[in-house]
Design a protein around this nucleic acid. Sequence first.
DNA 1: CCTTCATTCTAGCGCCGCTAGTGTTGTCGT
DNA 2: ACGACAACACTAGCGGCGCTAGAATGAAGG
Lengths: 205, 205
Amino acid sequence: MKVMSVQTRRERERAERERLIVTAARELAETEGWDAVTTRRLAEEIEYSQPVLYSHFKGKDAIMAAVAVDGFADIAASMRAARTSATGPHQALADVGAAYADFATRRPALYDAMFTHAVDLPFATTEAPLALQEAFGQLREAMRPLAGDDDLEALTETFWGGLHGLVTLMRSGRLRPEGREGRLTLLLDRFSHRPAGDGPPNVVR
Amino acid sequence: MKVMSVQTRRERERAERERLIVTAARELAETEGWDAVTTRRLAEEIEYSQPVLYSHFKGKDAIMAAVAVDGFADIAASMRAARTSATGPHQALADVGAAYADFATRRPALYDAMFTHAVDLPFATTEAPLALQEAFGQLREAMRPLAGDDDLEALTETFWGGLHGLVTLMRSGRLRPEGREGRLTLLLDRFSHRPAGDGPPNVVR
DNA sequence: CCTTCATTCTAGCGCCGCTAGTGTTGTCGT
DNA sequence: ACGACAACACTAGCGGCGCTAGAATGAAGG
């Protein structure tokens, strides 16, 4: 049994060090940008040598993917909070959309890890897709009451695309900075009200 | 006058070589991906040594930016053709949107250069913003007849965001591949018909 | 106390973007 | 026609990157 406890202790320490790596990578990226996140720098940050990184992750991409997964958990939590505290369906969608945009704006490095880098996130295994599906799920649940006859999945994906496109174009300087709120309102209007009749209560016709 | 002609010949040859560099970079990226576009490889491709690249461009980023500018000219031409050959306003927007999505799908490396890489494109000088503004202009003109009371600029930016978000999420595997057409249709519906009454002719209410 | 084995570290490989200094080539005045 | 010279492209190399093989180290078990 002595052996067992030693093993479990080592496993625990190993898991802690893995969290340390991911957290250090995220913080370094958020403070100095992903360019500053090199394996040498990251090793120095966690006070270990480079090769230990590779005993936890297959490579730098895998570390960034782990950071991205954390990011998906974060944004999912933000959207859940926004959705569950809203007063009605329309407000819920607006708040979730705002939460999404705020997340992308306030944590650009993390958002980049989630969408620009880390393209090959595991989609059909382990924990990774869980956080991702949870984030998408929040968008879907916010959209559900407003979907009407449209396919909920497709509608949510399209709305997601609208949000994602706006925040990415915004961050690369393609859109006028002052128009941010207006565009979000416009997007929400277009997805809060179904075009084919059966309009929402807050629209005068 | 002899001096003059020699100078002009050199300038012409220089300009040709610059085109050669940009074209080689684009083709290499489109055939083998941007990872394969290294300065050494590119130099080999154009049959010059590395330093000549730096006599034309400040660095690799500038070369990618030049490729991106070409891309904006391309996509603008595609959208213009789609728009001017459409039968009506709704069809025009649909065709322009389809042209945009097709471009992103068929030339992913080029699209990446335009939006993912090359973040610091010159926005207020020379020729670069011209192609970019031309591309945006096609979207705007397609949107104009359908803008109604909404701010045209903001509406176009929002629609653009929708398109851009869909194609980028699609390419990174975040969206169901089979839902592509459905999402595009959904997006077009939401932007073809203004939500507050005054519905379009092709919608039964 | 010593063996053994897992684990961590040192050192280095091939490649990257980029540049300083050298060599060559072609132009122009005499 | 030819030599001076300026412009230009090349060779060679710098520092840093992701990643890894093999040496060194430290703890567990006999």
